[in-house]
Nucleic acid binder design. Structure first.
Length: 922
RNA sequence: AGGACCAUAGCUCAGUUGGUUAGAGCGCUACCUUGACAUGGUAGAGGUCGGCGGUUCAAAUCCGCCUGGUCCUACCA
């Protein structure tokens, strides 16, 4: 093996091997385990959030696959109606064309062309992450089969009276010319104004002052409302207003909704352009006057002089005109929330249009019940509250979109405007007994992308046909997703799946946090703080990174700021860390928190961890290859204390890792594995094998036992780690397996370790801990006293029990090697010890002779530091034990524990004082 | 306005049902190229667990209030 770990040389090759050998596909044996990938947007490229999420899913899948389950990871992308259409329109725009120049059919062809060429970006990147979905079953929400499922669902919901068409106020995107759901609207706090206008009463007896943040909508006002209890205006209710700038008269109405304390207590009502006004309009049967076109320019319902003006131009003009009429009372500064389209970035208009809706209440009731009854569990549990709060206040779902790219609504109209819903025109004619001569026209609109992705868990498995895959893998085992998408997708999937499949889509929803930058900022292009997972894998030099982050930036100051920040944060660019390190970093951050701050400092640590594993394996291979490691199954070997210890610790580590994975705490799993590999296996065990393997006089059976343990524990570690770090483990495993007596073509399909409690040798653990205590004591003296590591020193041991004696005998060779000892001598009470530095391990005293090595003052200072620490501890313990309430009320074992501890600490303190006196009196 | 979540070492984070000497990684200090590894080793420094109060023999952990931060939902025109 190469001396240092080079991820780039192993990753690609192994991925190709796995994929071409079909290892990702379900085995067809064992209990089914399935995960449906939250389909990434086909226009997208892999961002840190995807990287995080896919890494988690891959770990779960690999773990369960190795446990022998029949594992399906269903992959695919969604067609992302608006986003994809926008991408292709932008391309057309570069040629100076619009989609209307092409026409619907040609445009859709173009989109498909684009999808074939560029749509595979994100799936290619997924492969770089080492993801192991069954690529042969990759689905796209616009695939024929999926299309069929979508149509089926629409038709059935319509026939079941759960889909209806209605003219309602929707969130309208004036740039994209489509309705969007309220989840796609981002409300942002903006500084604006509150304009106060005087509306004259028709009878000339005065005026009312109304306040508005949107003066342009006054052209569509059809009432002024006051609170019925408002003494100021009670007398005016029922009178009319002469609406300025128009020739209309509008009534003054009374409604509880009006807050007497806000503004003037009079509200202008524009039912066609405001959601609250709309409802009031319904209550009072007000006329609805729409004053906008699709692009939010004033339409011909308004006075001629405003027709065709953009809404913001019209606003200015109207304010000017009202001012000229002397009707502008005042302008106050005012903070308000402005709705923006999350795709287009323009201000969204409440707009009156015909749309299709899903009646959600009956679906939601079932969906709530499924979670209440525990059929579906959220992890962490707290997200259930979020789910419930949204579900219990659910609005009907507007599913039509005025786009070309998407699932076209299977509804047809005759010239009279009658609606017929069916799977195709022929079916519609039969179903509704329509004459062939009747002209039918299909609805122009398409369905919301989330409508189709709501069918994802069963639509991808062949529904409406009852396929074997559907029977085997539905419901899926777990959904892994971010909390930001609970409403968008999770809730809708649960509703639609329960209705059509009469079963839940998944047993568990594992909700993870959102990946942010190291300061907790959301990663965004405009902030210039985006990290590309691929750059973390392959590395990127500073100049390219700066360029990438500032590309397309229009504002020079912003560009400069981002460049400066990037150069400061990554003066050397980003090193190539490799996929395994990236994945491990994700796992280490996968705790229950909502925000995941990604700090590049941590990935470096895990790259080092990979290197550590790599080099440790190198050591193991050097000592086992071409040696007898009992790989033939022979049993003429002996295990050392160290061997028994590491095997014991391995069982405990396996248990901790498995518990972490099973409870969706990959941070705990990765931490347990990290500690075991680095601290137990590398720092201690490998060092403990050296005195055996390097001893020419050592018993061959003992050497064989050590080699056997070395290689077998390593082989187990690799399997244990594989779901988290697939590439490095496979690479090393291939070399290790013959020596460990393991079989199989790939570690991917090897069996996951199962902890065996009977292999835990408690005595071995205690004894090695004892040895570690002594070694650490000596090392502490060495370190503090600056004794060169190369200097071999003698030590004396005093005040030991028989058990200590036994431990010493068992550990002597380990102690000598790991603490660089020249000799270890046992002292009885009668023996006169030389002047020494002292370390305490329990009651045991370890003496390092000072002669020629240790300065008297330095040792006194070291002892003082030690006793200061212990003195504080004594004070704390005494205070506690002198408190009668503690002694009376706390459980006896807790009290005993503290008593013992106090005795120990006091004893140690006494010895330290004794030692200090000895040195001082010299 | 209502609700949720968060606040632990300089930084990024763990800390399961109250009882540990409060941990890890990075960074920092000192020493070390010893035959797996300087992407390393050894030793060490660093925290009154945001603040105040309460419950308890015992609180980082449970409760209340406050401060600071993030987010969600609903919005007053």
């Amino acid at each position: 093996m190469d001396k240092t770990y080079q991820p780039s040389t192993i990753e690609k090759q192994w991925y190709e091997t796995w994929e071409s050998n079909g290892y990702f596909a379900p085995s067809g044996e064992g209990d089914p385990y399935s995960i449906m990938i939250p389909p990434p947007n086909v226009t997208g490229s892999l961002h840190m959030g995807h990287g995080f999420q896919e890494s988690i899913m891959d770990a779960l899948i690999r773990y369960n696959r190795m446990k022998g389950k029949n594992t399906l990871w269903q992959v695919g992308t969604d067609h992302a109606g608006i986003a994809t259409q926008m991408v292709v329109e932008r391309l057309l725009d570069a040629e100076g064309k619009t989609r209307h120049d092409l026409g619907r059919e040609k445009f859709i062809e173009k989109v498909w062309e684009w999808k074939e060429e560029s749509g595979g970006n994100i799936t290619r990147q997924l492969r770089r992450l080492g993801a192991s979905p069954d690529w042969s079953r990759e689905r796209f929400t616009m695939d024929d089969g999926f299309y069929k499922a979508v149509q089926e669902v629409f038709v059935r919901l319509y026939d079941d009276k759960l889909i209806y068409r209605g003219k309602r106020l929707v969130n309208w995107d004036p740039k994209l010319h489509t309705a969007i759901s309220d989840l796609e609207v981002i409300n942002e706090e903006k500084k604006g104004h509150l304009w106060h206008f005087n509306y004259p009463l028709s009878d000339g007896s005065g005026h009312l002052t109304v306040a508005t943040t949107r003066p342009e909508t006054m052209l569509g006002d059809t009432a002024v409302a006051v609170n019925p209890d408002d003494e100021r205006y009670k007398a005016l209710i029922g009178k009319t207003i002469k609406l300025p700038l128009t020739d209309r008269e509008i009534p003054i109405i009374a409604d509880d909704y009006v807050d007497m304390a806000f503004g003037t207590g009079c509200v202008k009502i524009t039912p066609a352009h405001d959601f609250n006004d709309y409802e009031m309009g319904q209550r009072h049967n007000l006329e609805m006057i729409n004053i906008f076109n699709d692009d939010a320019h004033i339409n011909s319902n308004a006075p001629e002089k405003y027709v065709g003006l953009d809404r913001f131009v019209a606003r200015k003009k109207i304010v000017e005109d009202l001012e000229a009429l002397g009707l502008l009372e005042k302008i106050d500064d005012h903070n308000l929330k402005v709705p923006y389209g999350d795709r287009s970035g323009v201000v969204i208009e409440p707009y009156l249009t015909n749309q299709w809706y899903v009646k959600t209440q009956p679906l939601a009731d079932e969906a709530i019940k499924a979670v209440e009854d525990g059929d579906i569990n959220f992890v962490p549990k707290q997200y259930e509250n979020m789910y419930f709060s949204w579900m219990r206040d659910i609005q009907d779902w507007c599913i039509s979109r005025q786009l070309w790219w998407g699932h076209r609504i299977p509804a047809w109209y005759d010239d009279a405007g009658n609606v017929y819903v069916g799977r195709d025109e022929a079916e519609v004619r039969t179903k509704y007994s329509l004459a062939d001569s009747l002209a039918l026209k299909q609805d122009e609109d398409v369905l919301d992308t989330w409508f189709s992705s709501g069918l994802w868990t069963f639509g991808t498995l062949g529904w409406p046909e009852d396929t074997d895959f559907l029977k085997t893998f539905h419901p899926s085992s777990v959904l892994v997703t971010g909390f930001d998408i609970i409403f968008f997708w999770v809730a809708r999937m649960i509703m639609l799946t329960l209705y059509f499949k009469k079963e839940i889509p998944f047993n568990t929803v594992y909700v993870h946090g959102l990946v942010r930058d190291s300061h907790g900022q959301k990663m965004s292009k405009s902030k210039g703080n985006v990290l590309d997972p691929i750059d973390l894998i392959d590395g990127i030099d500073l100049e390219t990174l700066v360029q990438k982050r500032t590309a397309g930036m229009q504002v020079p100051q912003l560009k400069q700021k981002i460049e400066k920040m990037t150069r400061k944060e990554f003066p050397e660019g980003i090193a190539p860390y490799g996929t395994d390190a990236l994945r491990y970093t994700y796992y280490s951050l996968a705790s229950t928190g909502r925000d995941i701050n990604f700090d590049v400092g941590r990935i470096e640590g895990f790259r080092n961890f990979c290197n550590k594993l790599w080099n440790a394996s190198n050591y193991v291979l050097m000592n086992t290859e071409e040696h007898d490691c009992a790989q033939d199954g022979s049993s003429d070997y002996e295990l050392t204390l160290a061997d028994r210890w590491i095997v014991s610790r391995l069982q405990q580590a396996e248990k901790a890792v498995i518990e972490g994975i099973e409870s969706y705490r990959l941070d705990l799993a990765s931490q347990a594995l990290y500690d075991f590999i680095w601290k137990d296996y590398c720092d201690w065990y490998l060092e403990l094998t050296k005195p055996v393997l390097w001893d020419d006089n050592a018993d061959e059976a003992v050497k064989k036992g050590t080699r056997r343990t070395l290689i077998r524990v390593l082989e187990t570690i690799l399997r244990l780690a594989h779901p988290l770090m697939p590439f490095i483990t496979e690479e090393i495993w291939q070399r290790v397996k013959p020596l460990a007596g393991a079989e199989g073509d790939t570690i991917m399909l090897a069996r996951y370790p199962v902890p065996d409690a009977t292999k835990i040798d408690q005595q071995a653990i205690t004894d090695i801990e004892w040895a570690k205590g002594i070694i650490l004591g000596v090392r502490n003296i060495r370190g503090e006293m600056n004794i060169a590591p190369s200097k071999h020193i003698p030590i004396y041991i005093k005040n030991g029990s028989d058990d200590d004696k036994r431990c010493l005998a068992d550990n002597l060779q380990f102690l000598k090697k790991l603490a660089s000892l020249e000799s270890v001598e046992w002292l009885t009470d009668a023996d006169e010890a030389p002047l020494s530095a002292t370390a305490l391990v329990g009651k045991l005293e370890i003496l390092v002779p000072m002669a020629g090595l240790i300065d008297k003052e330095a040792e006194l200072a070291r002892l003082q530091k030690e006793s200061d620490k212990l003195t504080k501890e004594v004070e704390r313990l005494e205070a506690k034990l002198n408190n009668p309430k503690f002694v009376d009320k706390a459980p006896a074992e807790v009290v005993d524990k503290e008593k013992n501890r106090l005795a120990d600490v006091n004893n140690a303190l006494g010895k330290l004082a004794e030692q200090q006196n000895k040195i001082r009196n010299l």
